[in-house]
């Protein structure tokens, strides 16, 4: 039954690829990639349980962190076209936000 759950998650990832490729705007693609990353974390954990090696969870933790950072990095890049801009609130000019 765990294997069935793994297959369901993998099938969901496959369907998300359609949205990531066909999505009309950039933000649809970012959303699809972010959701794909969350499903990858869950699928890695499930794979560890199906194979009887829960050490896979370490990779899943690492992937959860990288997924968040990459989403924020992509969005920041396409908003400012640069990674060099500090993230501050508009009209506040570098206060502690």
């Amino acid at each position: 039954m765990t294997a069935a759950a793994l297959i369901a998650v993998l099938f969901g990832m496959l369907l998300l690829l359609i949205r990531a490729i066909a999505g009309p705007t950039l933000y649809d693609r970012v959303l699809a990639v972010n959701s794909f990353g969350t499903k990858t974390v869950l699928a890695l954990g499930l794979l560890g349980f199906v194979m009887g090696r829960p050490q896979f969870l370490d990779i899943a933790i690492l992937y959860a962190l990288i997924n968040f950072v990459s989403t924020i990095a992509i969005l920041k890049f396409f908003r400012y076209r640069s990674f060099q801009v500090p993230l501050v609130r508009r009209g506040q000019g570098g206060g502690n936000v």
Binding site: A5, L15, I18
Partner: peptide, 22 residues
């Protein structure tokens, strides 16, 4: 069996979310 059933329910919910995204 209880854990596997919960896993299956979670996997199906992931699938439902994907269907919604599509």
């Amino acid at each position: 069996p209880l854990g596997a059933a919960l896993c299956l329910a979670g996997g199906l919910l992931c699938l439902v979310g994907t269907v919604g995204v599509l």
